[in-house]
Computed example of a mutant assay.
Amino acid sequence: MTIRLLLADDHAMVRKGLQVFLQTQPDLLLVGEAANGRETLEQVALHAPDVVLMDLHMPVLNGIETTRQLTADHPEVRVIVLTSFSDQDHVLPAIRAGAKGYLLKDIEPEELVRAIHRVHQGQVELHPDAASALMSVVAAPAAAPPAPVAPAPRNPFEELTPREHDVLEQIARGLSNKEISEALHITEKTVKTHVSHLLDKLSVSDRTQAAILAIRHGLG
Rank of each mutant, 00 (worst) to 15 (best):
R68T: 08
V60F: 01
H57V: 15
I64S: 00
E65K: 00
D50M: 12
T66C: 13
P75A: 04
V79I: 10
P49F: 03
I64L: 01
E76Y: 02
T67H: 03
P49K: 10
L53F: 05
V51I: 15
V77F: 07
Q69D: 02
H57T: 12
P75C: 09
N62T: 08
R68Q: 13
V79K: 03
T66I: 08
E76D: 14
V52E: 08
I64G: 00
V52Q: 06
V52S: 07
N62P: 11
M58P: 13
L70S: 05
L56Y: 06
T71A: 14
H74T: 07
P59G: 04
P59H: 01
V60W: 03
V60G: 01
V52N: 08
A72Q: 13
V60L: 14
P75G: 08
T71C: 15
D55C: 09
D73N: 11
T67S: 07
P49C: 05
V77R: 06
D50S: 11
N62W: 06
T71Q: 13
G63M: 07
N62Y: 08
Q69F: 02
M58S: 12
M58L: 14
V77Y: 02
V79L: 07
P59D: 02
L61G: 10
L61C: 09
A72E: 13
V52Y: 04
T67C: 07
E76A: 15
V77A: 01
T66M: 07
H57G: 05
M58Q: 12
L53P: 06
V51K: 03
L70W: 04
V52R: 06
I64W: 00
H57R: 13
T66V: 09
L53T: 09
L61S: 10
R68V: 10
E65D: 14
R78H: 09
D50T: 11
D50R: 14
E65V: 01
L70Y: 01
V52T: 07
H74A: 14
N62E: 14
H74W: 13
P49A: 05
R78G: 00
P59L: 03
T66W: 01
N62D: 15
H57A: 13
R68N: 03
T71K: 14
Q69V: 11
L70C: 12
H74P: 08
H57M: 08
L56S: 13
L70D: 03
M54L: 12
R68M: 12
T67I: 04
V77E: 10
E76L: 04
L53V: 09
V60Q: 15
E76G: 15
L53I: 09
V52L: 11
D55W: 02
P75E: 05
D73K: 13
P59W: 00
Q69W: 10
M58N: 11
V60P: 01
V79Y: 07
T66P: 01
D73S: 14
T71P: 02
G63W: 00
G63R: 10
V79P: 05
T67L: 07
G63C: 02
L56D: 10
V79M: 03
T66L: 06
H74C: 14
R78K: 14
M54Y: 08
V52P: 04
L56K: 06
T67K: 02
R78F: 03
G63F: 01
V51R: 02
H74D: 04
E65A: 07
N62I: 08
L56T: 12
T66S: 11
P49R: 06
L61Y: 02
D73F: 00
P75I: 12
D50H: 15
P59S: 00
P59Q: 01
V52D: 09
